[in-house]
Simulated scan of single mutants.
Amino acid sequence: MTIREEQVLERIERARGRRARLRDDTIVLAHGSGGKATRTLVDAVFREAFANPVLDRMDDSARFAVNGVDLAFTTDSYVVSPLFFPGGDIGDLAVNGTVNDLAVAGATPLHLSAGFILEEGFPVESLRHITESMRAAAEAAGVDIVTGDTKVVQRGKADGCYISTSGVGVVTDPPSGALRPGDAVLVTGPIGEHGVTIMLARGELDLEADLASDTAPLGCLLAELRDACPGAVRRMRDATRGGVATVLNEIAADAGLAIAVDEGAVPVRPAVRGACELLGIDPMYVACEGRAVVVVAPEAEAAALAALRAHPLGAGAAVIAHVKDDPSGLVLLKTAFGGTRIVDLLAGDPLPRIC
């Protein structure tokens, strides 16, 4: 058996659910990247401690029924650096990220909470700017921020402002979840814009590009998609930490099927592609904050694409992949040169603090 064949078998075993083992003694930045290290930390520590049927589904939002009403509930924390960046700031990022987690569960977002951890010395004017961004984003998404919390830590013990948000919504049209060979995989627009924007805004690289974060609420876009393809939407995920590659790996592993990606079909703006090439980063692993990955039945492929492209937030949508029988749990990329390679989970942390 060749080394490559051994690597393939190892990835297949991991995709089929081999129990994760955490070998690190301390937390490192990679544990927050959304890739392999994050998945291992979650599986080996949090899922082991908190295991229950709702959590074990590992969706973007937890789904459960209360008095016969199907609800979705999600929570997230935001530690982006810098706090203000082209296209947005930590405030609208927090609101949009939370409502998008609800939207991809087929839920109509209703209410959010917001917790603030502020560093001593943080300018009140900056806090007002952030809260105004949150108010505007919540209004655009059709939700209210109804409760929250504030803590202040000593100077030097935080990075200005961290935000934790939770959201609840009513599930009106959940994805079926049951992938089948032949299903089409779409993205709702060009990928990688948020991650590259944050990287350039940090000022640590001698690069310039006309880019802005793609942060946006996806509820209306995904509702129109579901209306255009009733009963045909299998899965929806928002591609944040770890990017589209991580989402595809998780979907393939959960389904026990393969996903075959056409590299030439993946929409990437020239500025994003150029920056990624200079830095040696694959755009497939770069975070988005206003893009979703959607899997639909084969007969709905054309209708889904048309519905997405008819909405301003989906104008750049594309069909990028199809579901295959095997190899089970793997994501394969057909390259522009005609070859095929495995797209594995993100290793390491090329873009720290992007959300």
Results as ranks from 00 to 15, higher is better:
213 S>N: 10
70 D>K: 01
285 Y>M: 03
344 D>W: 02
143 V>K: 01
124 V>K: 05
284 M>L: 15
345 L>I: 04
33 S>V: 05
270 P>C: 13
4 R>C: 11
335 T>G: 12
284 M>D: 07
345 L>V: 03
178 A>N: 14
351 L>K: 04
118 L>A: 10
196 V>M: 11
243 G>Q: 03
182 G>Q: 02
257 L>D: 01
24 D>S: 15
194 H>M: 07
163 I>V: 14
130 I>D: 01
301 E>R: 14
193 E>G: 05
167 G>H: 04
336 A>I: 13
209 A>M: 10
183 D>G: 04
167 G>M: 00
339 G>D: 08
59 D>T: 08
78 Y>Q: 10
21 R>K: 13
72 A>Y: 06
225 L>P: 00
100 N>C: 08
227 D>S: 15
92 D>W: 06
184 A>S: 10
344 D>T: 11
302 A>I: 03
190 P>I: 02
64 F>D: 06
289 E>S: 14
312 P>N: 07
127 L>G: 06
23 R>M: 07
79 V>G: 14
185 V>L: 04
142 G>E: 06
160 G>P: 03
50 F>L: 15
75 T>R: 05
293 V>N: 00
247 V>D: 03
32 G>Y: 14
90 I>M: 02
227 D>F: 00
31 H>I: 04
263 E>T: 00
136 A>Q: 15
246 T>K: 08
309 R>S: 01
62 A>Y: 09
33 S>N: 04
127 L>A: 13
299 E>W: 12
214 D>K: 09
353 R>I: 08
10 E>K: 13
45 V>M: 09
247 V>A: 12
205 L>N: 13
239 A>L: 06
226 R>I: 01
241 R>S: 14
253 A>H: 03
251 I>R: 01
224 E>D: 14
203 G>D: 05
58 M>I: 11
209 A>D: 10
347 A>E: 15
41 L>I: 03
268 V>T: 09
54 V>M: 07
277 E>S: 09
324 K>G: 13
105 A>P: 07
315 A>N: 13
182 G>F: 08
210 D>T: 11
82 P>I: 08
355 C>N: 14
292 A>E: 01
308 L>K: 03
84 F>C: 05
166 S>W: 05
193 E>C: 06
119 E>L: 09
103 A>Q: 03
238 D>A: 06
258 A>I: 06
114 A>V: 12
141 A>T: 04
307 A>G: 14
325 D>E: 10
111 H>M: 11
